[in-house]
Design a protein around this nucleic acid. Structure first.
Length: 595
DNA sequence: GGGCCGAGCCAC
DNA sequence: AAACGTGGCTCGGCCC
């Protein structure tokens, strides 16, 4: 791989001449250079393609790149791309090309180093696998508003940089493929690679928001916040008799509830010497002011976090929200989401109902019923747990009934809550102390409750103990899909040794559960899109939240689309869960709401 | 004035 | 209340 060994193509005939060349190889690396990182706004400057023999840099400002469609959409060759989602989106928007057969070096690296490194940049990969240092500074020259590329001319440095990025990908790919094979991660890689076009299309489709309704909801919250503020001010007025006018002549008849300093002073006047005004401190106090302050803060939080800032993210061209879904954001294999994070929209507030279907369409919201507990039943093979799901019982009530040796009908709310807390808590590696805290028992009672639980579900305890040990002994755990998460074990003389070990043990317990759930949802997303296309349905994925999938389907096809969603989600679940049934709840509606 | 980080809180 | 897994966003404080 010699420096500057590439061909710069500006002639359409020459482009069409070289295309058959690509069919001769099993792999083809691809990269693009654009004016910015937003696929809707980006101007496409260069498209780089490299075979194991030759590297080509295409002048996308001069050329019609559509002839590439055939080869990029073909099953062969395998397309090697760093962060393929971006290139997919750019070529999709600019030329209607849907890249298929992807090997994403960035995702491959994430799969290989999950839990260890998060630096999956091409710069890092080039150093790690090839000992090559990439100078990424030249890339910035493409971004500048007055760069040569924008005028249709590329500098020698720009072209060489572009060529190099593409040409090294194949070498990186070869090494990564070997590692993926050695570590039995091929299945996981295939899953993630097949998911790339699914996620890209989901982002491009985006979600429609009812802006007016959203703003009305903010106004309601502001009103409630202001009412509480006024109440508090009224009650405190008598404490503030001599501060009518401040140094600047402003009337100073109110207390700034956002100022910890003023608040502490107020509490002092009320005879309360609080160390600070943190949530924990306020929660411990029985005082009316503390209670109202917490309420005030809750509204304030809603308004600032989910108010106007999310509306600002609406794309002016499409009128929709196009968040960034990162399919391997979390070390467990879960998605993360940002700009904005649609995975943390309040579940019980008026915000979700502002996510609406495109006119003429319906939204289909589907989620897995208790998928993580079903996974725990599957991996632990606990007979009582398995039976509960096989008989489609209310697991938490059943747990309570078995633990407290009473009939199902006699399980009261409190006992069901205690059982539920344990069921969920164990998946997070929770212990007696923190359970006691949640349930409102003392530690001894909490310990006793856990003992009863584990004597009822013996195999759950065995599995939890065994997987925690495995995490430490092997330094990694796996999901049922084969995904691997590696742990960096602390050295024995680390002062925090025991703390760190306990933390890894909790992660070891949780990762197979959370990660298997992620595996299942990812298979489901792929299956659903495939089936929509196979049936020619006017239906599209628009959103996913861990165990939930949201689809937009043309009104007259929404029943069929909903059926597809349910069937394919169950099929995905059954791919990994063999001993326990999989249940999915589905709802067709005009807005995003719980099934 | 911008980057970084922890606190606090939202989701599953 | 420092012992509950995975994240992102906003704010305030800190640092340069």
């Amino acid at each position: 791989m010699t420096e500057a060994n590439f061909e710069f193509i500006t002639d359409q005939n020459r482009l069409e001449e070289i295309i058959p060349e690509f069919e001769k190889f099993s792999v083809l690396s691809l990269d693009t250079e654009t004016s910015e990182y937003n696929p809707f706004k980006a101007k496409l400057f260069l498209v780089q393609l490299a075979t194991p023999k030759n590297t080509f840099v295409l002048d996308a400002l001069k050329l019609n790149i559509l002839p590439l469609k055939y080869i990029l959409e073909a099953k062969k060759p395998l397309k090697i791309i760093q962060n393929a989602k971006f290139d997919y989106e750019v070529l999709r928007v600019k030329a209607g090309i849907k890249i298929s057969s992807i090997f994403d070096t960035m995702l491959a690296e994430r799969i290989l180093t999950c839990g260890l490194s998060r630096d999956v940049s091409l710069k890092n990969l080039a150093e790690k696998y090839l000992g090559v240092t990439l100078d990424k500074k030249i890339r910035e020259s493409f971004y500048e508003p007055r760069n040569p590329a924008a005028r249709g001319k590329f500098s020698k440095e720009q072209l060489e940089y572009a060529a190099k990025d593409a040409s090294i990908l194949i070498e990186v790919f070869k090494k990564q493929l070997k590692s993926l094979e050695e570590e039995a991660l091929i299945e996981t890689a295939k899953l993630e690679f097949n998911l790339v076009p699914v996620v890209a299309e989901m982002e491009l489709r985006g979600s429609l928001i009812d802006k007016e309704k959203w703003r009305e909801h903010i106004k309601e919250l502001e009103l409630k916040r202001n009412l509480i503020n006024a109440e508090i001010q009224k009650e405190l007025r008598h404490l503030n008799p001599y501060s009518q006018v401040d140094l600047f002549g402003n009337e100073e008849d109110s207390i700034n509830l956002d100022s910890p300093l003023q608040l502490l002073a107020v509490f002092k006047k009320l005879g309360l010497n609080l160390p600070n005004t943190s949530e924990a401190t306020l929660r411990l106090s029985d005082h009316q002011l503390a209670k109202k302050l917490l309420e005030y803060r809750a509204y304030e939080k809603m308004i600032t976090s989910f108010g106007e800032s999310i509306l600002e993210k609406i794309n002016p061209d499409t009128g929709r929200l196009h968040p960034d879904f990162m399919q391997l954001g979390a070390d467990t294999g879960r998605f993360t989401c940002n700009n904005p994070n649609l995975q943390q929209i309040p579940a019980d507030s008026g915000f979700r109902s502002c996510f609406i279907a495109t006119p003429g369409y319906k939204l289909i919201t589907a989620d897995y019923s208790q998928i993580e507990l079903r996974i725990m039943a599957e991996v632990s093979e606990d007979p009582a747990f398995l039976r509960a799901f096989r008989e489609d019982r209310d697991l938490h009530s059943l747990t309570a009934s078995q633990m407290f040796k009473v009939g199902i009908a006699e399980v009261d709310k409190n006992r069901r809550f205690q059982a539920k807390s344990i069921n969920f808590g164990l998946m997070y590696g929770r212990g007696p102390v923190s359970l006691a805290n949640q349930i409102g028992l003392d530690i001894e009672e909490s310990r006793r409750l856990l003992d009863i639980y584990f004597s009822t579900y013996k195999k759950v305890k065995i599995w939890l103990d065994q997987i925690a040990k495995e995490a430490i002994r092997n330094g990694h755990v796996r999901t049922l899909g084969g995904r691997k998460r590696v742990f960096s074990l602390p050295s024995k003389n680390d002062p925090d040794y025991q703390k760190l070990i306990s933390s890894i043990q909790r992660q070891g317990k949780n990762t197979p559960i959370q990660g298997t759930s992620a595996d299942i949802t990812k298979y489901a997303l792929i299956f659903i899109k495939e089936e929509f296309e196979k049936r020619g349905l006017d239906a599209y994925l628009i959103h996913t939240v861990h165990d939930e999938i949201v689809v937009e389907a043309r009104e007259d096809q929404s029943q069929e689309a909903a059926k597809v969603v349910e069937e394919q989600m169950i099929r995905a679940g059954e791919k990994l869960l063999k001993k326990v049934p999989v249940k999915v709840d589905v709802r067709i509606s005009d807005c995003w709401e719980k099934p």
